[in-house]
Design a protein around this nucleic acid. Sequence first.
DNA 1: CCACATCTGTAGTGAACACTACATATCTGG
DNA 2: CCAGATATGTAGTGTTCACTACAGATGTGG
Lengths: 201, 201
Amino acid sequence: MRMGRPREFDAETALDQAMEVFWRHGYEGATIAQLTEAMGINPPSLYACFGNKEGLLKAALDRYTKLRGVWMDEVVAAPTARDVAERMLMGIADKQTDPANPPGCLLVQGGIACGSGSENVPFELAARRAQNEDQLRDRFIRAKAEGDLKESSDPAALARYVSAVSVGMGVMASSGADREALRQVATVAVQAVEAQSVDKT
Amino acid sequence: MRMGRPREFDAETALDQAMEVFWRHGYEGATIAQLTEAMGINPPSLYACFGNKEGLLKAALDRYTKLRGVWMDEVVAAPTARDVAERMLMGIADKQTDPANPPGCLLVQGGIACGSGSENVPFELAARRAQNEDQLRDRFIRAKAEGDLKESSDPAALARYVSAVSVGMGVMASSGADREALRQVATVAVQAVEAQSVDKT
DNA sequence: CCACATCTGTAGTGAACACTACATATCTGG
DNA sequence: CCAGATATGTAGTGTTCACTACAGATGTGG
């Protein structure tokens, strides 16, 4: 099997740069010119490697969720449902205001509404957000089985709730909310999970 | 003063149609062709009346917040902070899944991230969301003064929290969540406000 | 009825967009 | 060293975008 000329750029490093552009400008707002400049390559290299703009987005999302998945595993490893929610929301407050990244969450900033021809982009992002929600739901189901959450609690509703707060915090972060403001939101939000928990006194 | 030829379309009716296009496709995803077709006019009429695309968006946002403001007044008229939160979030669950409108909230769907040249669009939307948050905060300050909310509570944080949940619910609605799912989120979310309220037993 | 002002429809404008043809460069297998 | 295969840089491609020039239509004031 012939190999041909090897590519001169690192795909993952380039993806990190592309991720940041999508994160900051959204899928439709990001132009190929911006992407190629950030990635340090020319359009033909981009298309040879990722197919098209949407393929590049999906590759960037894969990388994002992969990195984020490691953190999510730590989140659901917390001992109680309340601690899971706290670790999740407090972590999000910090991550979404980390100056190393654009503010907010790529799974939201990427594109909530899109024009004709990109209708599946919001769908794609929603599917990735749903993965996190599923992970939370499974964790809360376990918490209920362990007697950590009340019998009257609804693990799926709780997971949806935490997921909704996360998304809301992301939007607030992208529009300028600082870390302290997001932490306050997280602190309040955790109390709803606490209300569904069995007292430990 | 000369009057000239009168316009042949109703500006508010046209704005309602434009609002729906922005709502469904976002600012960048909406094209002038889609907007003019929905409004039933030709481009020159649009530009003569609203200046440019961004001017049309602002006019649509003005109309949206005006209509929404009436409802917000009813929300903050609820007797307690807890009831304000419940009325707000339950109402949002219903409104954002009303088949008469596109799903979600225009102030979010309009555009969270935009490309170069439209950077102020997300800012504009954020400013309108902040108005609602301010209204909630003022109501919660009153609730605290009335002894409805605990002395330890933070009205500004509570308002941010309810605002964040609202936004999160909007994003979920736009990606297919049904009314029942959103109501469950609202039900859980209200419990955090309850936890900040003085017991009425 | 005329001068003027404003609106409307047709038909475009230049610019920016995602994407690619093509020639050249750099690798592997033999 | 050669043949085939893949990557790269230059320089475009056609399309779509927001926006507008212009001419004709429709109103008001004198």
